[in-house]
Amino acid sequence: MAKITAAEVNKLRKATGAGMMDCKKALVEADGDFDKAIEILRKKGQKVAAKRADRDSSEGAAIAKVNDKKTEGVIISLNCETDFVAKNESFVALANELADLALGHDNKDSFLSASYNGITVEEKLTEQTGVIGEKIEIGSFEKLSAPFVGSYIHAGNKIATLVGLSAAVNGAVDAAKDVAMQAAAMNPIALNESEVDQETIDKEIEIAKDQLRQEGKPEAMLDNIAKGKLNRFFKDNTLVNQAFIKDSKQSVSQYVKSVNSDLEVTGFKRVALG
């Protein structure tokens, strides 16, 4: 049997993130073979992942990243089972590393197949499932491109947002952050009224009509009054029409135009956990 040194155990721990005892056991089982020990730990992760496949992984860390040119951003959520793990520094560090890697990929499948320290992202998640003992997976993957992209991550990494602006003008950095904070706080369902799906519109009109009928309003008046209520719904639930949280006297669209008269919000992405 090969003698296992503390330095070898520490090297394996750094490479995999596994606990000291797990690393020592893997090295003993592998008779000191470092690569074989890594494989043993990965197989352990696969076994744990299989056992926990049906577990709910609604906790985790939502991370937003923007490229150096400020023209593209990504949000990923690294999901786990408990808030205790979600707050762990190593877990959050891994989420940030993976988000940096995600910037170079256009979709979740491409990202999961990407190389991370010699293994794929998907294999790394399986490995971490074995290390942590909880189901670990990528939940959300959202990309956004625009002439200028800004981001915001709410305290605790529970909500992350991206906002696209129509130009990289003076003040774009603050404007994008302000609007990204707005999206995080107010959870709009769409950018503007034209992007609200027809099913939602039909549902809101029907709800409004039912309320009006209960109030005793004549049937002939329902359509016009319901349209007014729908406009109120758009104002409350679409990002550019919402009252700006830092100054409720103006809408988000009006705030952005106060930064630059030609500036517009072109899109947003929002990911929330828990």
Rank of each mutant, 00 (worst) to 15 (best):
T82F: 09
K87I: 09
D178P: 00
T82M: 04
D83L: 05
F148L: 01
E81M: 08
T161C: 10
D109C: 01
G150L: 11
N170P: 01
E123C: 03
I119Y: 05
K135Y: 06
A172L: 06
A155C: 07
A146W: 08
V163M: 10
K124R: 15
V163E: 07
L103G: 03
G133E: 11
N96V: 03
L191Q: 09
N170G: 00
A185E: 06
G133W: 13
G150K: 11
A93L: 10
V92S: 02
N157I: 00
L162P: 06
F91H: 05
E134R: 09
A183E: 05
A114W: 11
A168N: 15
G118Q: 07
V131P: 00
K177F: 10
I153S: 11
A183I: 00
N107S: 12
N170M: 01
S166T: 06
S166Y: 14
E89V: 14
F148G: 00
L98F: 12
A160N: 07
K158H: 12
V92E: 02
N117E: 14
L103M: 04
I136H: 07
I136T: 08
I132H: 03
S166A: 08
L112K: 07
L98T: 12
G118K: 07
N170H: 01
V149T: 04
A183H: 07
F91T: 09
A155S: 14
D83Q: 10
E89C: 04
S166V: 04
A183C: 04
K124Q: 14
G118T: 11
E81H: 12
G130V: 12
E134D: 05
V131E: 00
F91Q: 02
A86M: 11
L112G: 01
A160D: 08
N170Y: 00
V179E: 05
D174W: 07
G139H: 09
V173R: 03
A180W: 11
S90M: 12
E134H: 07
A167G: 02
G139W: 12
E137H: 05
P147F: 13
I136Q: 03
V173A: 13
